[in-house]
């Protein structure tokens, strides 16, 4: 088992024919992901990477049975792309795009409130169920099928954790990069809930960073409902207040935003918190 996506997922790529879309769609196809087509408005009817190109997401749903979309369109058009996918009935929308204005995301969140779609991202590496479906920009070879669920705000830090897990013989059910923006579709808590409910997942790695209250929210939920061991790490213990550290959401505004505050809450809630990112895999092995 896995969460959200698997070998039966039928993926449509929004922004299919652009540079990013082309490169990463090729990699996804090579990984064995079932990419059923792409959307580039105005290029409908043509073929790209041996797959049909549609003018609209709705057409890809109707004609190719798409149920998951991945978005590579530029920031100025990304909010529109997310809403189009939700309107078309896509179940899981993965927004890779970095740099979407916050005001656009406030609207998107509002728009999605009464839709069935689940948004992952934006500004994220995507989601992967190893050996079944890679819907993102992560290097597929470091992942291995197994029993650990991984949720993280960051890209390369996720790869770091997964690589440690895989080398210790701990494969993954699914790994989700939820993104580093102030407003994102799927929160840490929501991802943890999904992993707790997944019978194949035996342990969860939860990687956060400075800024926002998502890790504390997840920790409190884990304390009340958790049934599986969770290993946690918060990046940015040495980050100065008031400075944006790369990700738009990674900024210490108040005292609850700090890594120290988050780590303390997580530890109180029974999460196995590691101080060093080099210990994530090892600690998971110990607590399983």
């Amino acid at each position: 088992m896995s969460i959200l996506v698997n070998k039966d997922s039928r993926i449509v790529v929004q922004g299919f024919t652009g540079n990013e879309g082309t490169f990463h769609a090729s990699q996804m196809i090579e990984y064995g992901t079932r990419v059923v087509g792409g959307v580039t408005p105005g290029k409908g009817g043509s073929t790209h990477l041996d797959r049909p190109v549609f003018n609209t997401v709705a057409a890809s749903v109707k004609e190719a049975g798409a149920d998951v979309s991945i978005i590579f369109v530029p920031p100025a058009f990304a909010a529109d792309a997310i809403m189009e996918a939700a309107d078309a009935g896509i179940k899981v929308i993965v927004a890779i795009t970095e740099g979407i204005p916050t005001r656009d995301m406030v609207k998107v969140k509002h728009y999605l409130a009464d839709k069935k779609a689940r948004l992952i991202g934006p500004n994220c590496p995507g989601i992967i169920t190893p050996e079944e479906a890679k819907i993102g920009i992560m290097p597929g070879f470091i992942f291995k099928k197994g029993h650990i669920g991984v949720v993280s705000k960051s890209g390369t830090l996720t790869y770091e954790a997964v690589d440690q897990l895989t080398k210790l013989g701990l494969g993954q059910t699914t790994a989700i990069g939820i993104g580093g923006d102030p407003i994102i579709g799927t929160t840490t808590k929501e991802a943890v809930e999904l992993f707790m409910a997944d019978p194949e997942t035996a342990g969860i790695v939860m990687i956060g960073e400075i800024g926002g209250g998502m890790e504390a929210e997840a920790a409190h939920w884990i304390k009340a409902h958790g049934t599986k061991p969770v290993v946690g790490f918060i990046a940015g213990q040495t980050a100065p207040p008031g400075r944006r550290m790369g990700h738009a959401g990674a900024i210490v505004g108040g005292k609850d935003d700090t890594a120290a505050a988050k780590m303390a809450i997580m530890a109180e809630c029974g999460i196995h918190v590691v101080a060093s990112p080099a210990e994530i895999g090892q600690r998971m092995k110990e607590v399983l």
């Binding site: 960051s154 390369t156 830090l157 990046a235 213990q237 040495t238 990112p277």
Partner: peptide
Amino acid sequence: GAGLAMATMDIIK
């Protein structure tokens, strides 16, 4: 990567 960059700063400390 921003997350790994912050984590690397933490490792230095």
